[in-house]
């Protein structure tokens, strides 16, 4: 797939403007690429390297470290079942096996119709609501085995449309209104004490 399209390039430039050092924008830009294509494509990584002023190898290096970035196609819906300790105690592994049977794949696999990818996931931070799962990072709490199957059925049939396709994280983005920014500059250009701090006293501040 592709480099960032025009609309996403504008978003990318807005994201870049919020960081004093361009390379810091790399993870948000990789998310943007994943939102565009459903996974992080090689061309997109090359594009991000240009935008962040680093080599493509550095982008691959960062991208490959993080579990959420997929460098190959995955299903439209990424189903993560938590099997960590709290969920394990209350049926997380049974839930995973039921969904493996339901989808006809092992965890880590993708269905033939490219609708679902199933993952055996680490703690999803909903431990008191065990067992829990996420579909494209949207939570399902205290989910019963039959309910989980119904979620799959509803997503497959199109009866359920509230979950955006894989790659979309927060549907709301931060925007700093024009003229409202305090001024984001590279660290070497911000080497003076902020104006609101009083002049240092002999004791020194921050002691």
């Amino acid at each position: 797939m592709a480099r960032l399209n025009a609309e996403n390039l504008a978003t990318a430039n807005e994201i870049l403007s919020r960081y004093p050092v361009k390379k810091s924008a790399m993870i948000p830009l990789l998310h943007l690429a994943q939102e565009q294509d459903g996974y992080v494509a090689d061309d997109a990584m090359a594009h991000i390297a240009e935008l962040c002023d680093v080599t493509p190898a550095e982008v691959v290096g960062t991208c490959s470290f993080y579990e959420m970035f997929k460098r190959h196609e995955v299903g439209t819906y990424l189903v993560n079942v938590c099997t960590n300790i709290s969920c394990m105690l209350l049926g997380g592994e049974e839930l995973l096996h039921r969904l493996e049977d339901k989808l006809g794949i092992k965890h880590g696999g993708t269905t033939e119709d490219k609708m679902f990818t199933l993952e055996d996931y680490e703690c999803l931070a909903a431990c008191t609501e065990a067992p829990c799962m996420q579909v494209n990072y949207r939570y399902f709490h205290r989910i019963e085995l039959d309910e989980a199957e119904k979620v799959i059925d509803d997503l497959r049939s199109g009866a359920r449309t509230d979950i955006p396709p894989h790659g979309t994280l927060g549907k709301v983005r931060q925007h700093i209104p024009t003229g409202r920014s305090a001024g984001i500059v590279p660290p070497e250009q911000a080497n003076e004490a902020p104006v609101w701090l009083p002049a240092p006293t002999p004791e020194g501040e921050g002691s």
Binding site: R18, Y19, S24, I27, P28, L30, H31, F65, Y66, E67, M68, F69, L169, G170, Q174, H175, I176, P177, G179, R180, S181, A182, G183, I184, P194, V195, W196
Partner: peptide, 27 residues
């Protein structure tokens, strides 16, 4: 930001700071 609590000259004082939301990626 729109209400003047974050950004430039917060609540009409000298105090200015930008807060940037950054996403992790699973690690």
């Amino acid at each position: 930001y729109a209400a003047g609590y974050v950004g430039k000259n917060i609540l009409d004082t000298d105090f200015s700071v930008d807060i940037v939301l950054h996403w992790g990626a699973g690690a």
